[in-house]
């Protein structure tokens, strides 16, 4: 049922509207660094880089109805690959080598982890994710000769693209292009048979199995897609701070992506994008406005969002407020129907 309504929306006129919205937003993001101070640009860059891992959580949530706490493993892998190859044991800082390398490593690790993590569901899946993340964290933390332990690795060189050294501004545009590319890729994936199969699995396991869907394989594939997203973002995150520490592997860090996805709204394709911007921006602003009280404020905001609108998230609130004006725009696109 979800599939029909969705393909029904693939009408050319809608695509035009969406295309316009996408182009406008991208243009804004491309022009903004010319007008704001550097720290705002760094912050926007961080938001942009949070989008792919949040999409990972979103895919696992919206397609499989599971909570994915283990994104920080892949962020950490990507970051440490950048830190080793472009910093500690300098080999290259060429993004065209580092990004695919991180992609391959993330896919490999996700494949292996997926074999046993993805066999579990619900609460057990969530805790398993946390446990594996913590195991990685303590490994990185304890191998201090190689990883620098809690001090991390600080002398990461600036990245280069096609052999040209990139400045901070250049890195911003690379981040913009990469996250935009990943968003488009995710859109493609969510409109493919793959996502239908996953929805079938989360709908009814036995039925899905009986019509010949390789249940475990498909689940593992979803985990791999999520991890690959985070791995790519990890490389760019490491370059944007020229520093990597074991906190990138901490499970609290992974939990932030879950919160971002929930805040954004897991019913909408734009949810992760909205969530990344709202979560990073809100956390930073609130914690600088009320340094003593920010935990209470953020906690209450998240709790209230979850209680009142649940999976609709901020996107849902915005849609309700400006329902008519946005009706035909990007926000309208639902990527799944919960069948309840």
């Amino acid at each position: 049922m979800g599939a029909n309504t969705r393909t029904g929306r693939m009408m050319p006129s809608y695509i035009d509207d969406r295309l316009i919205a996408t182009i406008v937003l991208t243009a804004i993001a491309a022009v903004i660094p010319l007008f704001v101070s550097e720290y705002v640009r760094t912050l926007i860059q961080r938001c942009l880089l949070w989008i792919p891992p949040t999409f990972g959580v979103y895919i696992i949530y919206s397609l499989l109805r599971q909570v994915h706490f283990a994104q920080s493993i892949f962020i950490g892998l990507g970051s440490y690959i950048a830190a080793f190859l472009a910093g500690k044991y300098f080999v290259t800082s060429e993004l065209l080598i580092l990004l695919p390398l991180s992609l391959i490593v993330s896919i490999g690790v996700a494949y292996v982890l997926g074999i046993f993590i993805m066999r579990r569901t619900g609460f057990y899946f969530a805790i398993m994710g946390i446990a594996v993340t913590m195991a990685f964290w303590s490994l990185v933390y304890k191998m201090r000769q190689i990883t620098g332990g809690s001090d991390g690795i600080s002398d990461i060189k600036n990245p280069s693209l096609f052999g040209i050294q990139l400045g901070d501004q250049g890195l911003y545009y690379v981040s913009l292009v990469v996250s935009l590319g990943l968003i488009l890729l995710m859109r493609r994936i969510l409109h493919s048979p793959f996502s239908l199969q996953l929805r079938a699995i989360s709908g009814d396991l036995q039925k899905a199995e009986s019509i010949g869907i390789p249940v475990n394989g498909m689940r593992r594939l979803a985990f791999i897609v999520a991890g690959a997203n985070a791995g790519v973002a990890g490389v760019l995150l490491a370059f944007s701070y020229n520093y990597v520490g074991p906190t990138t592997f901490a499970w609290e860090f992974g939990a932030h992506f879950v919160q971002a996805a929930i805040i954004g709204g897991v019913n909408y394709f734009v949810g992760p994008i909205v969530g990344a911007f709202v979560f990073v921006g809100l956390e930073f602003l609130v914690s600088t406005w009320f340094p003593n009280l920010w935990e209470v404020v953020i906690g209450v905001i998240v709790a209230v969002i979850v209680v009142t609108v649940g999976e609709e998230g901020v996107t849902g609130i915005v849609k309700d407020l400006f329902g008519r004006t946005l009706k035909r725009a990007n926000l309208e696109e639902r990527t799944y129907s919960d069948g309840k």
Binding site: T42, G152, Y241, Y243
Partner: peptide
């Protein structure tokens, strides 16, 4: 206590 947040905070 997070290095990345520290960079953002110093920037601000």
């Amino acid at each position: 206590g997070d290095p990345q947040t520290a960079v953002d905070v110093f920037g601000k």
